Amino acid sequence: MALTTDDLKNQINMGTDGGDAIDAAVLPTVLAAATRHVENFIGYALDDSEKLPEGAPADLEHAVLMIAAHWYEERETVLVGVSGQEIPFGASQILGEYREYSYGG
């Protein structure tokens, strides 16, 4: 998987020349955390050539960027006074298509 902080900057409409020192520190961390979260959720690494012989598909990369952008924008654990709803066909639905399930055994 070859997502970069520039990809994330584009996702959050920052532009590749935008940001400051805080963004320079936060963006790579958020992108790495989102990548790890997706890998843990689906049960394998995004660079696993057995599971993804052609590399990570665009929808999985998009899910990583969606999660990373959300985590960048919402850095706190609680939102107060905000009403929200998960976007249909968002990251959870994309990841569900790739998740490996195992049952006791």
Results as ranks from 00 to 15, higher is better:
Ile94Thr: 15
Ala63Leu: 12
Arg99Asn: 03
Met1Lys: 00
Ala32Met: 04
Met66Lys: 07
Ala21Phe: 09
Ser92Tyr: 09
Ala45Met: 05
Leu52Met: 05
Ala45Lys: 15
Ala58Pro: 05
Ser102Ala: 09
His37Asn: 07
Gly90Ala: 07
Asp23Thr: 02
Glu54Lys: 14
Thr5Asp: 04
Asp20Val: 01
Val30Ala: 12
Gly55Thr: 04
Ile87Asp: 07
Gly18Ile: 03
Ala69Asn: 00
Ala21Asn: 11
Ile22Cys: 02
Asp48Lys: 10
Ile12Asp: 02
Gln85Arg: 08
Phe41Arg: 14
Ala21Lys: 04
Asp23Asn: 04
Pro53Lys: 15
Glu54His: 11
Glu97Lys: 15
Thr29Ile: 11
Pro53Arg: 13
Thr29His: 04
Glu73Asp: 10
Asp59Gln: 13
Leu8Ile: 05
Ile42His: 14
Leu60Arg: 00
Ala58Ile: 12
Gly96Ile: 00
Gln85Trp: 00
Gly81Lys: 02
Leu95Gln: 02
Asn13Ile: 00
Val64Met: 01
His62Leu: 12
Met1Tyr: 01
Ser102Asn: 12
Ser92Trp: 10
Glu50Leu: 15
Glu73Phe: 08
Lys9His: 03
Arg36Ser: 15
Asp6Ile: 06
Met66Glu: 14
Val30His: 01
Lys51Val: 03
Ala69Tyr: 05
Ala32Ile: 04
Tyr44Cys: 10
Ala24Trp: 07
Glu73Thr: 06
Ala2Ser: 15
Val30Ser: 05
Ser102Phe: 12
His62Tyr: 09
Val80Gly: 10
Gln11Lys: 15
Thr16Met: 07
Ala34Gln: 09
Leu27Met: 06
Tyr98Phe: 11
Leu31Tyr: 00
Asp47Ser: 14
Ala68Cys: 04
Thr16Asn: 13
Ala24Asn: 11
Ala91Trp: 09
Gly90Val: 11
Asp17Ala: 15
Asn10Ile: 03
Tyr98Ala: 01
Tyr72Trp: 10
Val64Thr: 06
Ala63Ile: 11
Ala45Val: 03
Ala33Cys: 08
Lys51Leu: 02
Ala58His: 11
Arg75Val: 08
Ser83Lys: 14
Ala33Leu: 12
Val38Asp: 05
Thr35Trp: 00
Ile22Val: 13
Val26Leu: 09
Gly81Asp: 08
Asn13Phe: 07
Thr5Gln: 01
Ser49Pro: 01
Met1Leu: 04
Phe41Gly: 03
Ala2Val: 07
Ala45Tyr: 07
Arg99Pro: 00
Pro28Gly: 14
Ala63Arg: 03
Ser83His: 03
Ile12Asn: 00
Val64His: 02
Glu86Thr: 05
Asp23Ser: 05
